[in-house]
Design a binder for these strands. Sequence first.
DNA 1: CGCCCCTATTTTTTT
DNA 2: AATAGGGGCG
Length: 862
Amino acid sequence: MIRMTEPSKITSVPDHQPAAGGIAARARASVGPKYLSGLNPEQREAVETLDGPVLVLAGAGTGKTRVLTTRIAHILSQGRARPAEILSVTFTNKAAREMKHRLGQMLGHAVEGMPWLGTFHSIGGRILRFHAELAQLKSNFTVLDVDDQVRLLKQLLQAENIDDKRWPARMLAGLIDGWKNRGLTPSQVPSGEAAMFANGKGGKLYASYQERLKILNAADFGDLLLENIRIFREHPDILRQYQQRFKFILVDEYQDTNVAQYLWLRLLSQAPSSLASPRVREEADAQSAAGEGDSPQAGFVEAAPHPNPLPVKDGEREKNHVKNICCVGDDDQSIYGWRGAEVDNILRFEHDFPGAKVIRLERNYRSTGHILAAASHLIAHNEGRLGKTLRTEDHDGEKVTVTGSWDSEEEARGIGEEIEQIQRKGEKLNEIAILVRASYQMREFEDRFVTLGLPYRVIGGPRFYERAEIRDALAYLRVINSPADDLAFERIVNVPKRGLGDATIQLLHDHARKRRIPLFDAARAVVETDELKPKARGSLRDVVAQFDRWRAQREVTAHTDLAQIVLDESGYTEMWQKDRSADAAGRLENLKELVRSMEEFENLQGFLEHISLVMDREGGAEDDAVSLMTLHSAKGLEFDNVFLPGWEEGLFPSQRTLDEQGRAGLEEERRLGHVGLTRARRRAMIYFATNRRIHGTWSTTIPSRFLDELPAANVEITESKGGSAWGGTGGYGASRFDDMEAFGSTYSTPGWQRAQANRNRGGGRNGGGGRGGFEEEAATFSSSSSGPDFGSFSSRRRGPLTIEGELVAKSTGTTSEFSLSDRVFHQKFGYGRVTKIDGNKLTIAFDKAGEKKVVDSFVQRA
DNA sequence: CGCCCCTATTTTTTT
DNA sequence: AATAGGGGCG
C-alpha cells in the first residue's frame, strides 16, 4: 500500500494572519492543560517553554514524539499561532506521518491545517515550487532520483571524454551530494576538493550538472534545500516573508541534520528584522563552511571549529534575535554521520542559538533496568557527548544475554529456536525483532525461517518507487507532464522494445544539442527527415504521435484513467504480460497499485510533484511476524524481544567505518549498539559467532570490543541453543566480563578444540539444530533483500512470499495439496511440473531453472 | 540491436 | 557466492 501524506495541490502561499485573540482565549479557557497532565516535569517544561530557542535532549524511549506533538497542541490551544504558522520538520515521511497521526488523535480534525508539517525535503520542495523561477526552474520541475542523477552524470562524463571506469558517475554523484549536504554551490566548493575528481574536473562537472538540471527543468534532492538557501540569501524579502509566517519552528531528530539543513533552519529561525541583512553573514559562513568542511571527522568534537557558528557580536544579539525554535534530538542516537549528518549541530546548539534552554529527558518509559544499564554503560564509552543518564522506574527484568556460537549458521539456528520458545510462551511474533549491522546478515535468518516456516518480514530494502516498472511508468507520465524531461524520455523511448537503439538515441542527442531543444522535440523533427532507417523512423513517429495524443487526452481524462491508457497503449503492460519470468506478475501488480495510488491526488501534476518525495510503503503490521532489519532502520521502533546478532570485530563495529572514519566512526558504531539495545522493552539478546562467511569465504572472527564494554552486572553469558558445537560446558569466561581475556581464553578450551575438530571433519556444523539437508533449497527462496524486483506489494492475490511489510513465509501444513505432475508456478523459478512429493516438500522440474526441492506453500497451481 | 559471458564488487539509507 | 553491469560478439 502506498501512502501519501501531503495534499496534492498547493493553490497559494498560505496567508499568515495573526491568530484571532477570541479563539485563543476560548481555547485556553475550555481545553485547559488537560493534555499536559500525563507528562513528567521535564516533558512538561519542554512543552511549555514556548519562547526562545529550546533544545530537548531526549534519550531513547523518553517520550520525544509525545513532547513534540503536545507542544504543537499547546501552541495551538494557547492561541500563540495558527496551524499554518508552525513549521515542523522531520527526516522521514514515516515520522511526519506519525506526528500527524498523533496530533490528529489529540486535536481531532485540526491536522489538515498543518501545511508545514513534513520532511525537510518536502517542505523545501514546496517552497521551491513557489519561487521556482528564481532557481531558473518552472514550478512543475521534476525531482530526480539517484538513478536519474547517475545517468545524467554519465552523459556529462562521456561528453567530457572522462573514463567512467576510472571515475564512476556514482562517485561523482556522491561527491555532489556531499557538497550539497554541506550547503555548497559549485562556486563555493573548496578548490582542493573540486579538483579531486577526474584530474581537476570535479568542480566543473558539478557546475555543468547544475546547468543541465535547469535545462531539464529538474532538481535533485539536495537542490530542494540548497536552492531554498540560495533564494533566501539572494532575496531577503522572500526570506522575511517566511520568517514572519513561521511563528514556531519544531525540529525532530536534530542530531541527524546536515549543514544544509542547519543553514536552512537558521535562516528561517532568525526573527524577521529589517536591520540585519542576513545575506552578507550567510555568505561569509558558507565560505567558512567550505574551507573547513574538508575533513569533518578529523578532529571530531574536541577541537574542530564548527563549520557554521552563528556569528553573534556583542550588541548584535538583540538584532539577531532568534525566535521560537525547538529542536529535539539525542546525540547518542546520531547514526547517520556517514551521509552528512553533523553531530556538531546538536553539540553546539547552545552556542549557535544564544540563550537556548536545554532540557534533558532522562526518564525512560521503555526498557527494564538491566537493558537500560547495559545500554548506558556502553554509550558511556563515547567521549563526544552531551551526557545524559537514562533512568527507569521499571524493575530490573532479565539480564541482557550474550551468546557465542560456532558460526553464523548456528547463530541463526539458536535464534530460531529461541524465537520458537518465545512463541510457545504465547508471545506475539510482532514483538520480536532481529537487528543486524549489515543486510547480508539477513540471508542466514531468512533461510532458517523459511525452513522453520516461521513468518517474518524484512523492513527496509528497495523502495517501491525504485522498482524498474514503477520508474518506467513514471517516466511515461513525466514525459507527458514535462516534455523537456529528457531523462524520462530516454528511459522509455525503447521500453518496450521498439527498435530504437543506441544509434537512434545518439542521433536524437546530436540534434537536440545542436538546436538546444529537448530530445522529444528533436524526435519530432528527426521524424520529418530521412536520417533514420525507415523502421526506426516509423517507430519514432508512432511514439511522438502517441505522446501527442496522450497530452491531448490529459485535458479530458481523469489522471488515473490516463495512466492506465498510457500503460496499455504504449505496450508496457503487454510487455510484462508476455514476460514469463517469475516476477512479471508482481510487476503488473505493482503497476496496478501505482495507478490506484494516484487516486489520492487531484491531478497528474500533483501526483508527480510528490511521488518521489512522499511515496513510501506502509509497514503491514497486521500479520504476526518476526521483524528483520538493520540497526539503522530500527531507530524509532521498539519491541519486547530484540535479538542482536553478529557482535564481532570487523562486522560490528564495522571495519570499513573504522578505516574510513577512525575514532568518530567507532563512536558512531557504538551509538548504533546503543540504539540496538534501547529498542528492547523486556529482553535483549546479543550473539556473536566465531566463524562467519563473508562474500562466500569463511573467516574466523573475534568477539566485538563492545561486548567488553557491557557492565558485567547486567549481562549474562548463555549457551547457544542451536545445538552447540562448543561442547557442553559453555567453556568461556563467565566471570570477568569486562576483561578481553575472558573471550580470548575461550579459544583454548576443550569445547573450542572439539568444535575445531568437528569442523575439520566437516560434520560439526549441521549436526545441531539442522532439520535435514533442506537448507540448500530453502536458501534459494529468500532474496527479498537482494533481488530488487522480487515480490509485490500486496500479499493477498499472490503467493505467500512477498516483500517488506508483508508476510514472507507461511507455516507449512503436513500434507501437500499437490499431486504428481501438477503444473505449478513458483515466484522465483517460474513454471514447472511436480515430479516427487515428500510431505510438504515437492520436487519440481522447472522449465527454466531445472529440478529443485521446494516447500509447497511457495508454489501455486499454474 | 540483442544476447551472452565475463568480471568486478560487495555497510549502514532518506529524501 | 552471488549478482549486476559492462563489453564484446553474432
